[in-house]
Amino acid sequence: MNLIGSSLSCKRDGKLIFSDLSFKIKSGDVCFIKGPNGSGKSTLLRLLAGFIKVWTGKVSLNNEDITNRNDIIYNNFFYIGHSNSLKNYLTVKQQIDFWEGISEKKYNFESDSFNLKKILNRRIYECSEGQKRRVGLSRLSIDDKKVLLLDEPTTSLDIENVSRLKNYLKDHQKKGGIAIVASHETFISSNNQDIILTLNPPKNRERDPFL
């Protein structure tokens, strides 16, 4: 499996976010997107997830052009953004049930990748930020897609849980999946062959759309 982006550019509200971006990712790769605030990391992920239209350029998966082909994207890509998609008044158990209902797959409590067993009966609003993030990330192991798009997954996670996430990503690598992670932290995986994609804000941009 390979994912290739060639000279991608994206415009939002008439402003160029990034331009002429190319990358090539193959099975078992973890790609880290780096860059200063406002350089378009989240935009790139949302673009790959099919929420934002590609302005110019091409994205292809397994040599098939999937630019703006949302049907294929939805079947292969999995996106977790800044927000954890949680409902405050549900318990952790109910929240997971709800996601299981949407994706028609089950969370594996045997392996329990994100250590949720202890907080299953807690309401979301009683959880700390780190616990909320863990519940949010548990969607990863409910829905088992090939390409993971993670936006700042380590936010408010402690060291132990960052290593859980690493382990999860390593397993995903072994299974031949692809992960694209926007993160300021470097949590390089074992084989040290991660691709690092650096985004720089275009120089001719008049105003940062995120400020």
Binding site: A49, G50, F51, Y74, N75, F77, F78, Y79, G81, H82, S83, N84, S85, L86, K87, W99, I102, S103, E104, R139
Partner: peptide, 14 residues
Amino acid sequence: FDDGTLDLYILSNT
């Protein structure tokens, strides 16, 4: 929309 569940709905098969 605010908490991101709508993203999830759009990405899901439903």
